[in-house]
Nucleic acid binder design. Structure first.
Lengths: 320, 320
DNA sequence: ATAAATATGTCAACCGGTTGACATATTTAT
DNA sequence: ATAAATATGTCAACCGGTTGACATATTTAT
């Protein structure tokens, strides 16, 4: 009743262990009839080779660890979907880690992944100061996160996106544009959106102010800025909340208030197609991330940390 | 430069392999100073025990395979998030499989998971006729999918939800209510929503018709039913598309057309809070699925297939 | 003072595969 | 006719841990 093993297959097929192994791995000489016999035996026994045993010997698991805050989010959900797809296409499996933004969980996951001998890690969940990233010599790629000096990053052109969003609102006639950003302490390239906003406003000699997503930042923003007529939200979910709050306060979008979001994930665009947003090339980012990781895993040249920045795109909706 | 192994730790700490193993697994007698020495050596070497080797011996991987169409969807994204969380809390890791609705991929994933010796599988991606489910004796739980006779299913009360949605539209005064459903061939408990719709309409002696999500079903629906004034969509994404199309055709929601969706995932409710919907208890479903799986893994009694059905809830928005 | 508990060690077998060395028998090519 | 290629086998070592049996030395409890 135990799982059949290679020895069981060999016995049933009337051949040696080595022969079965040869059939399995397609190496050495094997006659057609023998190969057939082995296959029949495997089928009859419902045999699946034990990858754990194989992994142990070849010292390679073909598993990639993927650490992000959560799959329960249009951006990450889509990114992870594509990451998994690209990995799968190359014969790699994905161990999913939802850090939920908690440093202790991220740390625990990193340790777990090392114990599990994953071949590499793709992460975008960094809470500063996780030294494992520093120490690690394992292949790692960061998505939209600075993890450690030697770890390459894939991100989209956040600065350009920030400029595009801000200039777009200005072009549409907004005079009092505010920005909402995630926590500055996260040290992500996404902070460039904020820099872009602030520098663009400065250049245009317009007043600017950034709110961070803490507590009741949305109602505070409205209360403190009665003349507000434009909001650049650093992601689409925030933009949706801003629109909701504006409506609650009797403001019409886009007449009284123009709102532009950021990310442009598939699901967001399905559910809220009217939202103007800066669309990140999520699929391309996933592809590049997997590509960079594979380069490291297969030790393809590149001793240089080559960060990759992909272009963004303004999607004109009806909220601006 | 190779990864340190248990023998390296033993040598550095000046103890035997057995002693290190005892420290690692907390068995047998170990003195405090010895334990300390071993820990120091592990830290100095940056040693992580090789779980692959351990798994091979104990014949258990603490990995659960999770197969769903995609993480790029509010419902599955949330479900998978919670599944991963509950697994993690119990010391299990998740191998993520996005089948993309393709039978060949699902089949390949199932085989891969068996080779990888996962302790169990949670799946909700079934394209009929995957015999591996039938043959398998491995712990499996289905979420909203009939996989095989002996595989327990977790789902929400789809029939009740269908009745609630339909009666709600009737209560709001709709006379010509249509339903949009996924493919009937999928044999999912979600088909009960359709049954509920059709039976409720029949009971009320009202005309009914169900469209399946193929080709340009939405415009066809509008074209073929000029008097349409209510739509019960079997998920929120479809509902969003219906609303968009209605607006395009100059119909106002909810004045001219009332629309109710299904699922009520977190992200949908953030992006489209005005949508009336039937909310599934996604987190609870995840919890039950993991619970049922653990029962199987740990061979807790229950030879009976106990399917679990959880209650749904109507969320009144502004689209009905 | 002595038995029991504690602390550590050595040794060998095992988990389920892979691989290289070597042997031998049968085909195939020149 | 003979060398090379093909087909299969046996054997042993290995991947990096775990575990049980057994031995011995030191503490602790009665």
């Amino acid at each position: 009743m135990d799982k059949p093993k290679l020895a069981d297959v060999a016995k049933r097929a009337g051949v040696s262990l080595t022969t079965v192994s040869r059939v399995l791995n397609n190496r050495g000489y094997i006659g057609d009839k023998t190969r057939e016999k082995v296959h029949v035996a495997m089928k009859e026994l419902n045999y699946y080779p034990n990858e754990i045993a194989r992994s142990l010997f070849i010292r390679k698991t073909y598993i990639v660890g993927v650490i992000f805050p959560t799959t329960n989010n249009p951006f990450y959900g889509q990114l992870i979907y594509h990451l998994e797809n690209f990995c799968e296409a190359l014969g790699y499996k994905v161990l999913l880690c939802n850090s939920g933004g908690r440093e202790d969980k991220e740390r625990a996951y990193l340790e777990m992944l090392q114990r599990h001998q994953v071949d590499g890690i793709i992460a975008g969940a960094h809470n500063r100061g996780i030294d494992i990233y520093q120490r690690s010599t394992m292949p790692i790629v960061g998505v939209d996160r600075y993890l450690a000096g030697h770890i390459p990053i894939v991100s989209s052109d956040n600065y350009r996106g920030g400029v595009m969003a801000t200039e777009h609102l200005i072009d549409r006639g907004c005079k009092h544009i505010l920005h909402i950003n995630g926590q500055l302490s996260l040290e992500t390239p996404a902070n460039l959106r904020r820099n872009a906003y602030e520098e663009t406003m400065k250049r245009k000699k317009m007043p600017y102010k950034t709110y961070e997503t803490v507590d009741d930042y949305i109602s505070r923003m409205f209360d403190e800025n009665p003349k507000i007529d434009g909001v650049f939200a650093s992601d689409d979910l925030i933009a949706a909340c801003v629109i909701r709050e504006a409506n609650k306060r009797g403001m019409n979008v886009p007449e009284d208030l123009k709102v532009i979001g950021y990310d442009g994930a598939d699901m967001t665009r399905m559910l809220l197609p009217e939202l103007t947003t800066i669309k990140q090339p999520i699929k391309d980012m996933a592809e590049e991330a997997v590509h960079l990781l594979m380069n490291q895993i297969n030790e393809v040249e590149e001793p240089t940390v080559d960060n990759i920045t992909l272009p963004v795109q303004l999607i004109q909706g009806k909220t601006t």
